[in-house]
């Protein structure tokens, strides 16, 4: 039971990785805004934007918050809260028939 603190942590990524992630985040944001303005993509707007924003969300959590490299208990705690929150949002939207508007 007596692991040394941080014993589970694999080495953190380097500054170059951080900058690469930031570049991806920037590109995805540009894409999001572009999709918003492209009339032809209107029908697929909701799934496309949700997917892109989930990508950004995951990148920040995994690399900047180090969850990818950290103890899985942190992930379990956070993902537990996150899923409950998503559940609350989806359930309330369904109950108020506001999912498709």
């Amino acid at each position: 039971m007596s692991h040394r603190p941080e014993a589970h942590e694999r080495p953190h990524p380097t500054a170059m990785t951080y900058i690469a992630v930031a570049s991806v985040l920037t590109v995805v944001t540009v894409l999001e805004v572009a999709i918003y303005y492209i009339e032809a993509l209107r029908p697929a707007l909701v799934p496309l934007l949700l997917l892109l924003s989930a990508t950004k969300f995951a990148l920040v959590v995994m690399f900047y918050m180090h969850l990818k490299f950290d103890h899985k208990l942190f992930s379990a705690l956070f993902v537990g809260g996150l899923w409950l929150a998503i559940g609350v949002i989806v359930a309330l939207l369904a109950l108020f028939q506001a999912l498709i508007r």
Binding site: G81, A85, I89, L92, L93
Partner: peptide, 16 residues
């Protein structure tokens, strides 16, 4: 994790 629920509820309020 707890704050997820806080913002989740606020976002739900907005969307509703």
């Amino acid at each position: 994790a707890s704050d997820c629920l806080f913002f989740g509820s606020l976002i739900a309020t907005y969307l509703v």
